[in-house]
Simulated scan of single mutants.
Amino acid sequence: MSAQTPPTRQNYADAVGGAPVGVEASSPAWADAAASGHAGWAGHHSADEILRAAAEWVWMPGGSEHDEGDIHLARYPARFGGGVRGSRVRSCHDARTVVERAVERTREWGESTLTIWTSGSDAPGLDDELRRRGAEHIDTVAVFALPLDAAAISVPSGIESEIVRTMEQVRDVDAINVDVWQQQPLDAEGLQAELDDVRAALADGSGLRVLARIDGEAVSTAGCTIVGGFTRLWGAATLPHARGRGAYRAVLAERLRASGQRGAATALVKGRHATSAPILARCGFTHFGDERAFRLAV
């Protein structure tokens, strides 16, 4: 993992907790209120710019193989769960052809699982074709944005946030990620590489990692990457015993503050419906649509 990219596709979203806890079939209660803020975006990034930025936000872990064609495909290393992830569809072919080519490439790689993230900006849309093939809808994230000059996140007293700069802090980040995301801990070499990435991103202004502490204990972490005037918020993870106490708000507020200092104008985030999405809506973020994950056995 690095300071500029989240360690797994799961925490590509700002999810507060761990793995998905269910897929909502209908619009959640927070969605209408979060969508009502579109009119207040005059003078900021447009809805089209936000949706394009969200669609272009594709991550490939270190050691992955990737294929840029009708759909962006990435074969994940075993440490990140293996399998193939697809996203960002840009094709003149129909949905059946796009999915069939993705399936063929997955088989060529020797993998048996293909997970495709779809969005409203895909051309063509793949949802119906994936359902026709029996793909399982396993996750949904909401795309949110907020002008940084409108950010006002309240954080409960007793919670401290900090930017990650040291090896001790990197170890704290890794411990949280191992617990929340059920991933393997980094070895000494991996920890040093992470620290190098953290420091490089801070030096060139391209991103950062933050920690939140309660009574001195590191309980929450998250990162952000600054690209083209947007700060992409990712990788939020909070230890189970500390959830519901404001730790997510703390890492959210610190990233917004630090990103504004580094020239970003708009925060872009993908939050899970069941975890961070309601918090983001209450914090003033505007909902611009959803992205859905479908898993297909090939």
Results as ranks from 00 to 15, higher is better:
285 F>N: 10
86 G>C: 05
9 R>Q: 14
283 C>T: 09
71 I>S: 02
164 V>W: 00
24 E>T: 15
97 T>E: 13
61 P>K: 11
204 D>T: 01
94 D>W: 04
80 F>S: 15
217 E>F: 08
62 G>Q: 11
269 V>P: 00
96 R>S: 12
2 S>A: 15
288 F>G: 06
257 R>H: 10
232 R>F: 09
174 D>P: 02
55 A>W: 01
271 G>M: 01
109 W>I: 06
125 G>M: 05
196 D>A: 15
10 Q>H: 12
180 V>L: 05
191 L>C: 08
172 D>G: 12
186 L>M: 13
255 R>Y: 03
53 A>F: 00
268 L>P: 00
179 D>K: 09
216 G>L: 10
246 G>Q: 03
257 R>F: 07
240 P>M: 08
287 H>C: 13
139 D>A: 11
272 R>F: 07
29 A>S: 12
250 A>Q: 04
170 V>M: 08
185 P>G: 12
70 D>L: 05
295 R>P: 06
163 I>R: 13
65 E>R: 13
213 R>I: 09
218 A>G: 06
176 I>A: 07
194 E>L: 10
12 Y>D: 14
30 W>C: 12
79 R>E: 11
20 P>T: 13
236 A>W: 00
7 P>L: 11
41 W>S: 08
275 T>M: 11
231 T>A: 10
275 T>A: 11
92 C>G: 13
263 G>M: 03
86 G>P: 01
260 G>D: 04
74 A>Q: 04
15 A>Y: 02
209 R>N: 05
169 Q>Y: 03
69 G>P: 01
252 L>Y: 01
229 G>E: 04
64 S>Q: 11
153 I>D: 09
60 M>L: 14
158 G>N: 09
180 V>Y: 00
185 P>N: 15
289 G>E: 04
50 I>K: 01
157 S>F: 08
20 P>A: 14
187 D>R: 12
234 W>T: 08
169 Q>L: 05
111 E>R: 08
100 E>H: 07
69 G>D: 10
90 R>H: 11
37 G>Y: 01
182 Q>G: 10
205 G>A: 07
230 F>N: 07
37 G>M: 04
170 V>Y: 00
145 A>F: 01
207 G>D: 02
220 S>W: 02
25 A>I: 07
176 I>M: 06
157 S>Q: 15
61 P>W: 03
147 P>Q: 12
110 G>Q: 09
